[in-house]
Structure formats: C-alpha cells, structure tokens
Design a protein around this nucleic acid. Sequence first.
DNA 1: CTGTTAGCGCATTCAG
DNA 2: CTGAATGCGCTAACAG
Lengths: 327, 327
Amino acid sequence: MADVAREAGVSLMTVSRVINDKGDVSDDTRQRVLAVVERLDYRPSGIARSLATRRTGTIGLLVPDISNPFFADVARGVADEAYLEGYSVFLCSSDEDTARELEFVASLEEKRVDGLIACSSRLSAEDLSGALARHTNVVLINRRIPDLHAGRVLADDRAGACLVVEHLVRTGHRTIGLLAGPPASYSSKARLAGYRAVLEELGIAFAPELVRHCAPTDRGGEEAAAELLTLRPDITALFCYNDLVAVGALRACAARQLAVPDRIAVAGFDDIAIAALVVPPLTTCRVPRHNIGVEATKSLLTQINGEPCNGCEIVLPVELVVRASAP
Amino acid sequence: MADVAREAGVSLMTVSRVINDKGDVSDDTRQRVLAVVERLDYRPSGIARSLATRRTGTIGLLVPDISNPFFADVARGVADEAYLEGYSVFLCSSDEDTARELEFVASLEEKRVDGLIACSSRLSAEDLSGALARHTNVVLINRRIPDLHAGRVLADDRAGACLVVEHLVRTGHRTIGLLAGPPASYSSKARLAGYRAVLEELGIAFAPELVRHCAPTDRGGEEAAAELLTLRPDITALFCYNDLVAVGALRACAARQLAVPDRIAVAGFDDIAIAALVVPPLTTCRVPRHNIGVEATKSLLTQINGEPCNGCEIVLPVELVVRASAP
DNA sequence: CTGTTAGCGCATTCAG
DNA sequence: CTGAATGCGCTAACAG
C-alpha cells in the first residue's frame, strides 16, 4: 500500500479511501490511484484490515459431518448467502466429536470470526452455551437452548411428523412403528412429539413399545426395524427418523419378505436425493435444507450488523412428499 | 495480552513466550502467567498474530458444489486432515460458476490463506493458472495443468475405467455404450481413454457412435441413455461417467423395459452412497474421495512448510466394485 | 477533498 | 531467563 501511495503521489489514507470507496476523493486522484493499484497488482491485506477494524468478514459453520448430505445442503445454503454478502466461511466438520466441536468453537474465537452458525446435536446444552457465550453473534440450527442469546433456525419437524403420520393413518394404518433416531436430538424429540400428537388426535392410543430409537443411519434403521418387526409383527407401517433410516428399514423388510408398500408401508424424513432413487421411492417429508442455511446466514448477518435478535426464531415449513413406499 | 502481562507482573514478551511455548521461561513465571491467562479467560488474537508472523494457519478449499456428495466427501477429508494439523479451512462453493470461482481465488488472497486446494473443472487452464499464480501454495484435485507450479492429487480414473470395461468384456459384452460426462473435464477424458484402450487391447474396435457426452447428473444420464439406446439398440452394456449418470441410465432402461442386468448391464463410477442403495445395486469403481482430500491437504501442508514439490503428483488407486447391475 | 497521528494485538530482534 | 523497542499493513479520528 505504501508503494501505491508513493507511486500515485498521495498519502496512505487516500489509497485506503479509494480502495474502500469511502469518504470523498476527487475523481482525478481516484483514477490515478486505481491505475497504480492495477499496475502494481496490489491487493489489500484483509488481515491488517481486520486488525484495524475489528471485523474479519468471516463466519464459522459448525456441522457434525459435512459428508452427510443433510449438512452438505445446509452448508451450500450458508456458502451461497455468505458469498452474496461478501463473507467468507470457515468450515468446521466435527465428526460428531464433542471435544473437537469445542476446539472448533475456541479456534473460531481466535480467528475472530464475526459470527458462528452451529448445527450441534451431541453437545449438552450447558457445554454448548458455555462455549458459545464467548461469541456475540450466534445462530443455532435445529436446536433450542434457553438462556442463550442466539438466533435459531428450525425446520418444523413436529408439523412434518404430523403430516406423515396423518397420511399413514388416512391410508388405513393403525399400528405404526416409529424408528425414532437419537433420543437426545431436537429433531428426534420434535418428530416423536408430532407422531404422538397426531395419533392421539385421531383416536389411536400411543404405544411406547412401537417406538424404537436408533442411530440415524441406514445400518441403524435396518437393525432397529428388524428388532421392532420381530417384537411387533402386527405393524403395518414404519415412520422413520430420516431417509437413511428408512432405506435401512426397506432392507429389513426385504430380508423378511415383507412387500413394501403392500404388506408394510415405509416413510422417511428430509427428502434427501436418495429418497427418490431407492426402490420403492420413499414417501417422506421435505426439509428445506438449503434454505435453512440461507436463513441462518441471513439471521446471523443481521445480528452482526447490530440488530438485537434477542432469541429470535425462524421456523421453516416442511412438505409431505408422497411416493410409492407409502402411497 | 497487556492485561495478562500487568496482572502477572511480567512483560508482554514473556506472555507471548508462554502462550507459544517458545524460548525459555522459568517454570515459576510460566505457571504464574498461565494462571492469569486462565483467570482472565484470555484468548490470543489470531488476526494480530497473523499480521506479525505472516502466516494465518488457514487454507482455502475451492469446490464446484459442496452439496455434491463427491466434493462433500473430499471436503470431509480436507477438514479432517486440516484439523489434525491445526489449520482452518475456508469453504468456497462456486456453484459451477467460473466468475464466482475467480472471485473466491481473489478473496482467499485477501484473506492471506497459507495455501489453496482447488477442484475446478469449469475454468480454462489459462484462467485458472492466471488466478492461482498469485498463490504460492496450491494443490489441484483431478486436474493437470502444465506450467503451473502446483501439487496435484488425482484418482486413477484411466485405470478405473479399464477395470470396469474389462469386467464388462470378460462377462461377455462386446457392444458397450459410454455415457462420457462433460467433455472438458479431466476425469471424463481419462475415463474415455481407459475405455478406449481396453477395448482395443481386447480386440474390440472403438466406435465413436457408442460414446455420448452428458451432464454429470441423473437427468443427464437418463436423457443420454435414452438417445443412445434409440440409436444403437444393439448395446448390451452401458459404462457411465459416474453413479448419478448410471442411476439415470437405470431409469432410461426401465422406461424401455430393458431388464438390468439381463438385457443390459449398467456400470457407474465413484461408488457414492447411492450406488449401493439403488435397485439393482450398481457395479462401479470406488474412488477414494475422503483420501483425496486428505492427501491433497498433506501435500499442501508440505508445500506450506517449505518443501518445493515442484509439480509433484499423487495418483490414488481405485477399485472395482461388482454389484448386481453388471455381475 | 486530503494528510497526519495514533493505534489494532501480537512477534521479532536485539539488549540486558 | 527476561524486557524494550520496532514494525506487520491498515484504518479511525482528527486536522487542515
């Protein structure tokens, strides 16, 4: 920058002004400076700028696993919106490891990110809020933590579960098994709540033995479905925590020669790409993953720009998608 | 930091030494400083440190689309290895947009990343090397650019194509269609080369009309397969650019009532999660995506640490995976 | 409209 | 083993 100032015959300040389009600079000198910038191929140092302004133009994105298509889609939304607003994104994929997650939060603090978007299911509410307390601008995805000054973006999991279960009941099912995913997760609790609420609303008693928690993977779904179907062979429909679990459930049904959907219906959740490609294609509930990322980023940037957002919450609508696995 | 120094009754320098475990500090003062650091909850500013040391401890990761499972897996590998070595990763998902890609490269320069990993297929060799020339440490994934001082990490696409096509020929196929993906991409060219080489090696003439380029998506595969099968109904096997294209091909076959694999065999490439879950499960070639990310990061960090790596190249082996779509 | 002064928070270089 | 001086590259707040 000193070189530019010297070559253009102006002060550092004027160069700074031209670069940042700030303050008034005569058109004449502006052109002169820009020409030198061009000629010298000068790029300002974001580092130095950050030190001086105390803003870095970066945000952190914390996900359990970026190779999980759900979080990859959310990340895409975050990346898109951040790009539009001129922010850079630090990717932190914690491998579902709470220790690593805490390290990331600390590292992001050292990097002086302007804000932080966290998808965290594993960390306890205390640990997470303890770690995040040091960050002023935080948005939580699919998680509610009381007493934490943070924005929240949530999919309407409960309503989605209601839609799916209602569809199953309407198509004649009365004994509906639930493969409920990890018991501690917010989505799992919300979907379970929706399942239970609709059943009772429609006059079907809630039976705890029809609910089985499982890992949110196809393996988890396969095992849990096998066990549940052994205990309760009278089940005629399975509502699965997510599409991967549903894929596992399809395999378990195939292994037991249970035709889907004729003998047993199967429904998933999320509508990831796989859902439409398996056989039979899955009835599921579409969660606007990309939009979750976009909204979380918008909310975060709002905070960064000084709006309070005291525990503001955005709930995004979901949509029933009926396919052959539960027509 | 000034606070810490004052409270501990030492100089700034000593605090710096303790924090960085550098230079000799008496055990006594070290403990004292650490206690104050703890008490004041002090975190050093990475920004200020970066300005002073001219190293940021960050790298950039440039991908066409983070929601594409291929790149999500690569990103996971990069994130894992970077974490192990204490580096942070800037995620740049360019949405296959060359303009955005160039902006990212410029932005990463402003952020003063220590290095850059690029998966870029769209940008021309000149544009890409022009942009990257300003970065000293670069690793390219699945791309060879001459005259660019950069490390390279490649999957052995050619060998993989050979394995798949050889398998098809060995199982009796002589008229093998190729859905070849985007003509400009490195992988597409390499896989085409392998296809052609094996055919000729096994005494089967290469027929250009059996080759059809397409978008690397299920839609692209479906359309291209439909067209190719109309032109050449004598085809008995389809070798597809990747698994998504193969999924599209499966759909095209189903639409024409061509039983897979009895009437026509279908093979994909990459072995993404979907490959094992569709019906019939896909014969494919496993590409070590996570490991590509890991090796690219290792190579980049080696460069950052001063080893020359003048156009060094790492070729990662691939593996044939036989499933029901081409047994 | 433009320049000057004074840091941002740390690490480096040299003295003690 | 410890400290003082200096600068990394830029911007904020004034002054002119």
